[in-house]
Structure formats: structure tokens, C-alpha cells
Simulated scan of single mutants.
Amino acid sequence: MNTSIGIKNENLAKVAEILVETLADEFVLYTKTKKAHWNIEGQDFYNKHLFFEAQYQQLDGIIDTIAERIRTLGHYAPATLREYLALTHLSEHHLESNDSLTYIKALLSDHESILIHLRENIENFAVEFRDAGTSDFITGLLETHEKMAWMLRSHLK
């Protein structure tokens, strides 16, 4: 069944394609944040364990809203690790240490990468694809990642 919401089908497909990549990025970042939560070591273990937990819980909510946005546009959300790894802009990497600074730097880099990707697409959603709803949605997501990145960056000062 066609999604008839005032956006051309080809534009819906292009928007969904970008959102699918964003979903993959978010899922990979979620997994990396969960790893930090599980494996953090050091004198600041307890505080960082709780900090990473709060961040992965926030990412879990983001993942759900992106998948639901994709479905709202009439497309299907990927949901396998293989698909996510094929679609993501992020990379899996082995960290040399399980201390908080190592995790924070790696996660901050990923948030910043997602921020750049989101910022590159906001105007495309609104202007090129005529989808103000997704543009607004991505703006909110951008603001959430900016705050999460700020929280991570603040630990480095």
C-alpha cells in the first residue's frame, strides 16, 4: 500500500535510505556504549558505569524513534547486525584500554561523526525531498547528539 502523505514516493525512498543509514549508525553507537558500560575499569568505575548506562538508554530510545519514522514513511527498518554493519558510517574498533578516557574519546568521535552526517542531510530533507517532518525530526536528533557529545567532552577537561 502506498504511503500518501504529500511526499513523492521517490522522495520517501531517498529519505528512508538516509534514515536507514542513520539507524545503523545509532545501533552501532548503542552497542559501543553498552560495551563501555559493561567493560569500564578504573577508579571512576561506578560513576562512568552509570554515565554510560544513561547514554545507552538514551540511544535505545533514539533507535526506536528512527525505526518508527522509517515505518511512518512506508518503508521497513533493518534489524540485523549484518545489515547495520553494512550500512553504518562508524567502524568497530578494538580499544587498547578499558579506562574511561579511552571509551569517552572513542564514543565522542562517533557522536561527532553522526552529528556531521545529520547536519549534512537536514536541508536535503526539507528542500530537496520536501519532507519538513523528517527535517524537524533530524533537527531534534541533532540537538540530542550535541548534548550527549557535550557530556562526553566535559569529561575530557
Rank of each mutant, 00 (worst) to 15 (best):
I70R: 01
I104R: 02
G74Q: 06
T72W: 07
D64L: 09
H89C: 09
T102Q: 07
L59S: 01
L81Q: 08
G61P: 06
G61L: 10
A86I: 07
G74I: 01
T65I: 13
H89E: 09
T80K: 11
E92Y: 03
A86V: 05
S91I: 02
T80C: 04
Y56L: 07
L85T: 07
S100H: 14
A54P: 04
I70D: 02
T72S: 10
N98E: 10
L59V: 04
E83C: 09
K105C: 06
I70G: 03
L87E: 12
H93L: 12
S109N: 08
Q57A: 13
E92A: 03
L73A: 08
A54C: 08
L85W: 06
T88L: 05
R71E: 03
N98Y: 14
T80F: 09
Q55T: 06
L73R: 07
R82S: 13
I70K: 03
S109W: 03
I62Q: 13
I114D: 00
R69K: 13
T65Q: 14
L85A: 05
A79W: 15
E83V: 10
T88K: 02
L107D: 06
Y56Q: 07
A79P: 08
E83R: 08
I62K: 04
Q55L: 12
E96M: 13
L90M: 06
R69E: 11
A67C: 08
G61E: 14
H111W: 01
L87T: 09
I114W: 00
I66D: 01
I62Y: 11
R69F: 10
R82N: 10
D64T: 15
I62C: 09
K105P: 02
E83Q: 13
G74P: 03
L81H: 11
E112A: 02
L95P: 03
G74A: 04
L87W: 10
Q57S: 12
Q57M: 12
L90A: 05
L85M: 10
H94E: 15
S91F: 02
L101G: 10
I104Y: 04
E83S: 14
L59T: 05
Q57R: 10
A106Y: 04
T65M: 12
D99M: 04
T102V: 08
E68I: 05
D64Q: 11
A67F: 05
T72R: 14
S97E: 13
H89T: 13
E96Q: 12
I66L: 09
S100N: 14
K105L: 08
L101V: 11
L87C: 11
S113E: 13
S113L: 09
L95G: 00
D110L: 00
